[in-house]
């Protein structure tokens, strides 16, 4: 009797968890993991992928989401952060970086909103140089203070009192990759999902 009761108990708790997994992970996996990427969405280049690694390493996701909410749900549309996100936008994203916090603005389409390389560089070096009152941390270790810049290096255009006498601040390879990644964030193409929906209606 005790054995049967224990068996029912263990079977029961096992079943509840597996049922939840099947519904929330298993079935979505079958349903949407096979979707094709939109034609306009390109695979990350090696440089962009490296920049994405820096984005993960420095934990940008803890303050910046990468998902745009639809009309009538928040003010994402009014703020012109882009059209509502769909699963196909994330086909190449691994790990996903949807985020759950917006201490700072959404970055799903930052590559469209802010195209200036020098703005991004200064912003990463010291956010308060370009955004007054920003609470974003500075990332000085992504930059190097040097006597003179090399031929291909990006030199930051900083106020005089921020640069030591006779030196220049240049971006490291990591900063360049990170900016490259940020500029690649562009999901402004037509929603592939919407096209499918229209087809079904016709």
């Amino acid at each position: 009797m005790m054995f049967i009761r224990s068996f029912v108990f263990f079977f029961g708790v096992l079943a509840t968890l597996l049922l939840g997994w099947a519904a929330l992970v298993g079935i979505p996996d079958i349903m949407i993991s096979e979707i094709d990427p939109p034609d306009e969405l390109e695979r990350y280049t090696a440089e962009e992928a490296f920049g994405r690694q820096i984005y993960i390493r420095e934990g940008c996701v803890y303050c910046h989401s990468q998902q745009v909410r639809p009309e009538g749900f928040g003010a994402d549309q009014e703020r012109l952060w882009g059209r509502p996100s769909v699963p196909a936008d994330y086909v190449f994203d691994r790990p996903h970086l949807l985020g759950t916090m917006r201490t700072g603005p959404d970055l799903m389409n930052i590559g469209v909103r802010q195209t200036s390389v020098s703005w991004h560089m200064e912003h990463l070096y010291d956010p308060r140089l370009v955004v007054e009152g920003s609470t974003m941390p500075p990332y000085p270790w992504l930059f190097e203070v040097k006597r003179s810049a090399g031929p291909d290096e990006f030199v930051l255009d900083l106020p005089e009192d921020r640069v030591p006498e006779g030196k220049v601040v240049v971006a490291t390879r990591e900063a360049e990759a990170l900016v490259e990644y940020l500029l690649s964030l562009d999901r402004s193409y037509d929603s592939p999902q919407r096209v499918v929906d229209n087809d079904e209606e016709e």
Binding site: L19, A22, A23, I27, I30, M31
Partner: peptide, 8 residues
């Protein structure tokens, strides 16, 4: 899929 979930 929904039918499957409900069935299970």
């Amino acid at each position: 899929a929904a039918l499957l979930v409900v069935l299970v």
